[in-house]
Design a protein around this nucleic acid. Structure first.
Lengths: 243, 243
DNA sequence: CGAATCGTTGAGGTCGCTCAATCATAGTGG
DNA sequence: CCACTATGATTGAGCGACCTCAACGATTCG
């Protein structure tokens, strides 16, 4: 079994030192990647016994639909993110997952992850740490939608994306792939696509960032952070708790 | 050691059958309750090595402050809720906790809960299940703030509170303690207190519910649920996953 | 009694929405 | 190769949900 340097491993190792056995377990977990076509729904809300997925490359989105046709995007999982850990604990998914771009994922079944907690508690703990970090992002998202203006919360989203992608080495140059349409952004930010368009224009005209043709260029990260009121505390924590 | 029927135990047993050893571990976890005065902050954002707390009675709130003085309430923990599990995994709290009323809590230290995962994995799993349910509530909260109108999301909050309190036996009569000021509600719902006032009036005039003098009276739960577009799926799940 | 907190109501303002049109790009079938 | 369609970005005009500011009443507490 190889122990490839996946994005997920890279992320975990940024915070925990994993030993040989743990790296082997992790590699085994990610061993059989699967390709999912863009626009495919991986998990549907209320689905029973859903799998979890470790994203190796591509972009996804987690969302909930409302009766009136509205959609709220919860998060945008990217390479290195573990989707659906919660679905496993709850036995049923509280929201849907879909692929935005083509996606390479490792499927993780419920029994497998449960076994992992028993056989490799430190690795299990690291996975819980990653899941907790994702929760903290949802909380920050809630804060944005509830209490920040449209411009601030849009800036905030892009600062967060930048930092997340930097962590897995996908945003080194201040310019990176970002395949989010203005409709998708709107449903994430609690705005309309029309208004997102105007907000993006503002950010462009203020020389902060430009989103174009599926690529984001960050012109002034400090400025963007200042505008967003971004506090990176919830993203980069100290090492996780050891058993 | 006694094995008192606490709200937390009641909640867990609604979903898992716990054996004698597990009940003993649980009782031991909740053995030394502590009283916290109303308006006290238990955990401050960014606090290192924060404890977790099992609420035995009273109301609390989890929230984040913004630079401009704004506040976003994340959740209202009540009896039976486990606050701060995430702070333990992250080693630092991503938000603050405060007591709304006088509060009786059992303090749980990080090492203790870690040990629990090793010695009593099924109980650990049950705790993770409860934490996952709380996350699902935060997600639902995000959906409300992002995509529901002020009236709908207010109705939604009260439907959810009603169902949570019913689970621990505190809302049997369709009337129960609810010590939430309109300011607190506003900061939870992403509205202003003035607007919350008008929304509450609407709900009252439509004969759906009345919030008065710290008590909520639900006149028409089905009507309230219909208005809220409430789907209880995320609250009452099947039994949790066994090891 | 004064101070503080909370609820209530009114008048007017604004941020973001709705509706609608235009343009660019890419894909599709004839 | 060229309609024809679909998707996404862009911009304008007008509107409405919710906010801001302000005042006042009720209750509690020192």
């Amino acid at each position: 079994m190889t122990t490839a340097e996946t994005a997920f491993r890279r992320k975990l190792e940024r915070f925990v030192r994993l030993n040989g056995d743990e790296l082997a377990s992790l590699a085994e977990l990610e061993a059989r990647p699967r390709v999912i076509a863009a626009q495919t729904e991986l998990v549907h809300e209320h689905q029973q016994d859903a799998q979890a997925y470790i994203v190796q490359s591509g972009w996804a989105c987690a969302y909930k639909m409302l009766a009136d046709g509205g959609r709220q995007v919860i998060s945008f999982p990217v390479a290195g993110d573990f989707m659906g850990v919660r679905s496993i604990m709850l036995r049923t998914s509280d929201h849907s997952f879909a692929a935005i771009t083509d996606l390479v994922v490792a499927e993780v079944t419920a029994p497998r992850i449960m076994r992992l907690f028993a056989t490799s508690p430190r690795l299990g703990c690291a996975i819980l740490w990653a899941a907790s970090r994702d929760e903290a992002m949802v909380v920050e998202h809630l804060v944005g939608v509830g209490r920040r203006s449209a411009v601030m919360r849009t800036a905030h989203l892009f600062v967060e994306l930048t930092m997340r992608l930097q962590l897995v080495g996908l945003a080194d140059e201040g310019r990176f792939r970002c395949p989010l349409s203005q409709y998708l952004l709107a449903d994430s930010l609690g705005l309309t696509a029309v208004h997102v368009n105007r907000v993006l224009r503002q950010l462009r005209e203020r020389n902060l960032m430009t989103l174009r043709d599926g690529y984001l260029t960050v012109h002034d990260l400090p400025g963007l952070q200042r505008l967003a009121g971004h506090d990176s505390g919830y993203l980069d924590q100290a090492t996780i708790l050891e058993f």
